[in-house]
């Protein structure tokens, strides 16, 4: 479970999160939408403590991040995966090594077990035959699929997706969405997506948050938020996105 209690976060004078109160249930699939600069990515990045709030509390699986020492934080992050907009694969490692490096270093299981798991995840994103390719030899879509498999190989309890398709060429977006949908359907991992892909959100989300100006403006099921938004701000945003 992830809990935000009165979370305020500023970058200099710019207040990005203005008092967020939020509870995200274990195993749920949440999609966060909203205009850029509204605080979506910052909200996501507070969960693995890439951004540190000035006020409030962020509690992840009973650990208060505000009080966690660096060592605890490193440990916690092992079970909080992140998929980035720009993939961020390790360019000096093959696809398979990208999956196995961190789990082996951090001993997330025995050696053989980790390698088996990596192969399995590479297979599930459909890139088994690219195991020994380097990231520079892969397309953007393939790189992002490897990045998803890399996050899965850590056996995370929480998986954060920070605009995973925004840097992709249009023809590659669908293959990544398909993989994410598959993962969301198969795994009992708490997943939070920051995305502009509304149809995808409607398929997989059990909850949609509309974030604007650093506050949660709408919070409901995809049907409620997409088809019956209770605020004009959200309706206007959806109007702009969908047309």
């Amino acid at each position: 479970m992830i809990t935000f209690e009165g979370v305020h976060l500023s970058f200099g004078k710019n207040e990005v999160l203005k008092g967020i109160n939020l509870t995200i249930a274990t195993g749920s699939k949440t999609v966060v939408i909203g205009p850029s600069g509204g605080g979506k990515s910052t909200l996501l990045r507070t969960i693995n403590f890439f951004e540190k709030p000035q006020r409030g509390r962020v509690v992840v699986n009973d650990h208060d991040l505000m009080k966690a020492a660096s060592k605890q934080l490193y440990r916690l992050r092992q079970s909080i995966g992140m998929v980035f907009q720009s993939f961020n694969l390790y360019p000096h490692k093959t696809a398979l090594e990208n999956l196995t490096m961190a789990p082996l270093l951090l001993k997330r299981g025995g050696k053989d077990e980790i390698i088996d798991r990596a192969w399995e995840n590479l297979k599930s994103v459909g890139l088994e035959e690219k195991a020994s390719s380097y990231p520079s030899q892969l397309s953007g879509g393939q790189q992002q699929r490897v990045a998803i498999a890399r996050a899965l190989t850590m056996n995370p309890e929480i998986l954060l997706f920070d605009e995973p398709t925004s840097a992709l060429d249009p023809e590659m977006i669908q293959e990544v969405l398909d993989i994410m949908e598959k993962v969301a359907g198969e795994k009992n991992i708490t997943m939070i997506f920051v995305t502009h892909e509304m149809r995808f959100a409607e398929h997989i989300a059990d909850r949609v948050l509309f974030l604007d100006g650093g506050i949660i403006v709408e919070d409901g099921t995809p049907n409620e938020v997409f088809h019956h938004p209770s605020t004009t701000r959200c309706a206007a945003f959806l109007g702009r996105i969908l047309h």
Partner: peptide
């Protein structure tokens, strides 16, 4: 992004630097 990727997997500062 390389530092972020490594730290998001739970690598420490030193591990991120070395590996």
């Amino acid at each position: 992004g390389q530092t972020e990727a490594a730290e998001s997997q739970g690598l420490s500062r030193v591990q991120t630097l070395v590996f």
